[in-house]
Amino acid sequence: MKQKKDVLPYYVAGVLLLLGIVCYGAFSAEPPKEPVRQMFTCVAGKVLFTHKTHTAESGYGIACADCHHHPEDAEESLACGECHKLPEDGSAPESCEDCHEPDDFEIADMIKQADALHGQCIGCHKENGAGPEECASCHVKHSF
């Protein structure tokens, strides 16, 4: 006698597939406007920066303009990389030319992103006597 085929697993697979598609579609990975944490990637190893802990009143309460310092009167802060990430061909970042004429600034004066972040982080940590200052205290060599 031929055994009757159990169709339940096929229905379960179909329903779960639909559920998966709906969850992926409805809850897309759109990052929040103000990041909770940021991962800076570089040759020396990744650095996990607790952005919200630094900005929240319950955290260190640092004002946006203390880090996102330019331009001072901007309604929305520019990300560090918009200015400090210099194109390899030696040209100026696009964000500079949004406000400045090409003759108004020297690209050689612009600090590279790594130096800017090092200066910002270590400078502030030293100034306040809090937070890590050594390379190995922030940079992660083994990440998975």
Binding site: Y10, A13, L16, L17, L19, G20, I21, V22, C23, F27
Partner: peptide, 20 residues
């Protein structure tokens, strides 16, 4: 939350479909 549900639901259903 729902993102985890999405991963699990898709993984179980895809595994079954690959088998089929």
């Amino acid at each position: 939350g729902p993102k985890a549900i999405g991963v699990a639901a898709l993984a179980v259903s895809c595994a079954m479909l690959w088998e089929l």
